[in-house]
Design a protein around this nucleic acid. Structure first.
Lengths: 369, 369
DNA sequence: ATAAATTTGTGCGTATGTATC
DNA sequence: GGATACATACGCACAAATTTA
């Protein structure tokens, strides 16, 4: 009946709240927590409920009580022993490029004697925070993370600061938070990729080039910006009504229907730049539904050069995604960070240039018309 | 003033009493303790006090409670420290079905508060042994494993025995070792799948049906056996020269070239049963290279119903692989094993029946010729 | 130094929710 | 559905340790 996930136990809420205060640094080691009665009043719960919450935190080692004095924040002793585990946090597990990225990481890490603790955030910041909290409690030697909804301001900086404090090195892949400065990271030049593939279309004589981009990650924004820049460079005006933005949640239905509608309304669209190969296939499906042939009637480009881009029947012009290579590079970077922790602040940032893979989903337009 | 050394806390007395009963053997592993109300009545204390006592015993690992059932005596007194990690060992990471299987496992396990430690064996028994050794040294609460080269006799039984000894429950997926008896496992009925898809081809009137199978895993053998059985059932003779066997190492080149050669030599082959969708695509590529159209000239079947089976252009008749569902089931089975370790010896075995997905890669043959 | 106030610890009674049988 | 058993939650009273006026 009622969503049980919605129901929040009062003591659990208190536990979460206090944990946050501990992680955020609001409560530091040996600080006294508010007394049971104060908490009881502040949260409008009974003292028993407060005690239950404190008991949980006590069991987990975050706090300790002293009879008659108060309850205090524990000294979080950082483990010095190596666990031999590193964590890999991605937005998705089964999305078509991650398996290979993870494989690349695994290759290098297994070789170096580490095991991979796998987590995914489903592109939710809340899940990302939960993951990081969990990992902070566990015993990890390093972290490779693809930030969720990465164009958005990071809402849990304190967790990353905690990583710094614990001297757990981390490497960003696919994106990072601008506010954090140049932390070690490996990313692809999505701006250049969007630019290059759009420039390729203009060089083929296309005049009205639509775009389908993901709105809630940095890749989507960057590819879009490259797309827009290439249009302007070629003297074409950037037209927002030619751009479909979609969100993680509606990636399968929305682009299909939006493109259907857009191309029906504006039949002179002669090319579509897509966020990735999967979306490109959706777009091709939509186009064939209204009788438009690719590339005869309209050109379509993908992005990532995934297996589906080269499958029999489809043959997408796309941008190569290094996949394993990216994973391997991230793993190597993390290994070097773990080796010399003093170099932690070394701003290492690798940007992988895009590589255009030309196949058969685009066709030269007759420029005479 | 009452002598404070004389004063015994009520809940402490209950704790001591129950501990004594556990040590004396009066309460053995898995025995149900009296209910909270019964204890409350027997010791003439409030139920809260009973709960406090039980909570202490729970923290110390002597007992555990099950909502709605009762409170029980733990198996092992100690070793209550949980790592919160379970390991998932597969043959490959990026092969097209594992990401989704792992995603299914992750879904359930994350929900239950566990993290996944990911390892892969690249289908090598040596790597599998190394993985298990490594995991035994780490702190894992459970294991989901896809055995490598699973039709072959297990060469490192001692490692699995060690898992039993350490009371680390494990679940096999995709295959298991016959010599170990019926350990908890979830597998698909590959024999029935091979049978069903071959029977479908014979029902379409095909007479000369080739097969391409993987030689070094159980799935390959079972699918082959189903294929062979279906042929004989239909009165067709099983011809070993129509079967291509390939190994993990040469899965990309060998099937392509063997099929090329086979079909060139025997042009009356009218169908090919393939080990999986990926191989089916290779076969279709090879056939189109010598001018054979699918399904017009020759029918081809896949297996697994992966994304590439339904991609634009290809449209493979195949057998559905449950993927996420398989992962979820495995995770749930492992959770229940971890919950009551005494049930460890319970032979739980789930076999998932195959489901035929008919698309457009097969065509009815003219039976008059 | 003593008393009062504060804070955690123990203990009881009651009511309601929810999982299991 | 009903009975049982654990889980959450509230309110109250008093004890014991500590701090403060």
């Amino acid at each position: 009946m009622e969503n049980q996930d919605e129901r929040v136990l009062k003591y659990s809420k208190l536990v979460e709240d206090l944990k946050n205060k501990i992680f955020s640094g609001e409560l530091k080691a040996k600080d006294r927590l508010p007394s049971e009665n104060e908490l009881s009043a502040a949260y409008e719960v009974s003292r028993q409920t407060v005690r239950k919450a404190l008991s949980v935190l006590g069991q987990e080692g975050y706090i300790y009580a002293e009879h008659g004095r108060g309850t205090f924040c524990s000294e979080r002793v950082r483990h010095t022993k190596k666990s031999g585990n590193i964590a890999v946090v991605t937005t998705y597990l089964s999305d078509y490029i991650f398996p290979r990225v993870i494989q690349g990481i695994d290759q290098v890490m297994t070789n170096a004697g580490y095991s991979i603790l796998l987590k995914n955030t489903r592109n939710s910041r809340k899940m990302e925070a939960r993951c990081l909290e969990e990992l902070l409690q566990k015993d990890i030697d390093g972290l490779i993370i693809e930030p969720s909804k990465s164009q958005i301001f990071c809402a849990h900086m304190h967790l990353y600061e905690k990583l710094d404090e614990f001297e757990i090195p981390y490497v960003f892949i696919q994106g990072s938070f601008k506010q954090m400065g140049d932390k070690p990271q490996i990313l692809m030049d999505d701006y250049a990729g969007g630019y290059q593939i759009t420039e390729y279309l203009t060089s083929l004589g296309h005049k009205k080039i639509a775009g389908v981009f993901k709105a809630d990650d940095m890749q989507g924004l960057n590819r879009h910006n490259g797309y827009a820049a290439a249009l302007q460079k070629s003297g074409l005006t950037y037209d927002p009504s030619l751009v479909v933005w979609f969100y993680t949640e509606d990636r399968t239905i929305h682009p299909y229907e939006s493109i259907l509608q857009m191309v029906s309304e504006m039949s002179d669209i002669d090319a579509v730049v897509c966020y990735n190969d999967q979306i490109a296939l959706e777009v091709i499906r939509a186009l064939s539904h209204i009788g438009k042939k690719v590339p005869k009637d309209i050109s379509v480009t993908g992005y990532d050069n995934s297996v589906i881009a080269q499958a029999e029947g489809v043959s997408l012009t796309t941008i190569a995604h290094p996949q394993e290579k990216l994973g391997e590079m991230a793993a190597q970077m993390l290994l070097s960070l773990m080796k010399n922790k003093e170099k932690q602040d070394l701003e290492e940032k690798i940007v992988i240039p895009p590589e255009l893979i030309i196949r058969n989903s685009c066709k030269k337009r007759d420029t005479s018309e």
